Simulated assay, not measured.
Amino acid sequence: MSTEEQPAGAPAAGTDEAHRQYVIDLYGVMAYGELSAFERFSSDARFSPTLRDRAEIGRVAVIEFEHFEMVSAELARMGVDVQTAMLPFQASIDAFHERTRPGDWYESLMKAYVADAVSGDFYRAIASRLDPQTREVVAGIKENKEQLELLTTRLAQALEGNERLASRLALWGRRLVGEALTQAQRIGIERSFLGGLLGFEESGAQETVIAELFAELTRNHSRRMNALGLTA
């Protein structure tokens, strides 16, 4: 993966101001991701096959909005308006959701299971290289244990004894992970913040570490699909 030149007027790489902008970009993309997830879960809840499903997916939507408020508060602490921070990522994230529009409620569950888990792994991996304050914020926002357990349980129930659905969702899952990884890579390149957050200025070092990161994301995805009895 190659990196693009810094935009005109951008702070020099390696400076405190550059790091601050990297973190603002990270929070911005996370904020819009959480807001989009809230909207997606709210919409999905309306098409739930049972009232229990509707209530549980509605609860997940609430959690996503709480996460959006958490990252908004952190941006405000930095003196940054959340709308300003989110705006550079709106078109790219919206395009991702257009490309991965689910065909039914079960595909919506699989999308949440794959995309939210991959993004959680991605941001937590980046956060492991950040300052303690930012690392703590990211860990709190991307804590998705409750959502993952709910989605795993509901998908396992739906897949039990249903080979046709299993085959369809396995194929859908493979498409989703490819789109999710491409999306993460694209966002990192667009704003040139991925290499900066990982602490490397030389392109060769960036490419090596980023390749290892994406390999780990792929392995984690395979483990989650195997947990459902599906082929990644």
Rank of each mutant, 00 (worst) to 15 (best):
M1A: 04
S2Q: 11
E5I: 06
E5P: 12
P7Y: 11
G9T: 10
G9F: 09
G14V: 04
D16W: 01
H19F: 15
Q21S: 11
I24N: 08
D25T: 06
L26Q: 00
M30H: 09
M30G: 08
M30F: 09
Y32F: 13
G33Q: 12
F38I: 04
E39L: 14
F41T: 11
S42T: 13
S42H: 08
S42L: 15
S43L: 11
A45S: 14
R46P: 06
S48V: 07
P49V: 05
D53G: 07
R54V: 08
A61H: 11
V62Y: 10
I63T: 05
F65H: 15
E66C: 15
F68T: 08
M70P: 10
E74A: 09
L75Y: 03
Q83T: 15
F89K: 01
A95S: 12
A95T: 04
E98L: 07
T100K: 04
T100A: 04
P102G: 14
G103I: 03
D104F: 12
D104Y: 03
M110K: 12
A115S: 13
A115D: 10
D116K: 15
D116V: 05
V118S: 11
V118A: 05
S119A: 15
D121F: 08
D121V: 07
F122M: 03
Y123T: 12
R124E: 07
A125L: 00
Q133H: 07
V138R: 00
A139E: 11
E143V: 06
E146P: 10
E146V: 15
L151P: 06
R154A: 01
R154Q: 04
L155V: 05
L155E: 15
A156Q: 12
A158W: 07
A158K: 10
L159S: 05
G161S: 06
R164L: 09
A166S: 11
R168N: 09
L171K: 13
W172C: 08
R174E: 14
R175H: 14
R175A: 14
L176H: 11
E179N: 02
E179V: 00
L181S: 03
T182Q: 03
A184V: 07
A184P: 03
Q185V: 02
Q185L: 08
R186G: 00
I187V: 14
G188V: 01
G188I: 00
E190I: 01
R191P: 07
R191A: 01
F193I: 03
F193H: 02
F193S: 00
G196C: 07
L197Y: 04
L197K: 01
L198N: 00
F200V: 03
E201I: 02
E202H: 02
S203A: 11
I210D: 00
I210N: 00
I210C: 02
E212R: 08
L213I: 02
F214M: 07
F214K: 01
E216H: 04
R219Q: 13
N220A: 08
H221E: 07
R223M: 08
M225E: 12
L230K: 01
A232T: 15
